[in-house]
């Protein structure tokens, strides 16, 4: 189970990002818990300069603008181990 957090104070791009993450995860069959972080005090803790930001399992993987579909797919791709 991946822990995904989308940081952003409810702008259009943030909503589109949440939609995209949900869609890609469902399509790839990856179980996730999706949390919306919309309080600026909480967002500030992650040290991002632009919203929306995406945090996966505690690591900031994206900040600013809607990520591309290919990018999201790479986040959810099984890691070769």
């Amino acid at each position: 189970m991946k822990d995904v957090r989308v940081l952003g104070s409810g702008c259009a791009n943030c909503r589109a990002t949440i939609q995209l993450v949900e869609d890609v995860a469902k399509r790839m069959g990856v179980p996730i818990t999706l949390t919306k972080v919309d309080q600026i005090q909480d967002i500030a803790r992650y040290g991002i300069l632009a919203t929306p930001g995406v945090v996966i399992d505690g690591a900031v993987v994206h900040a600013g603008g809607i990520p591309s579909r290919g990018q999201v797919e790479r986040w959810f791709a099984p890691t070769p181990s």
Binding site: S9, N13, I43, A50, T51, G64
Partner: peptide, 17 residues
Amino acid sequence: TPFCSCSAVPLFIGFVQ
């Protein structure tokens, strides 16, 4: 620098920090 006014606050905080 790419900028969107919805990011003004995180940017402000990040700069000041």
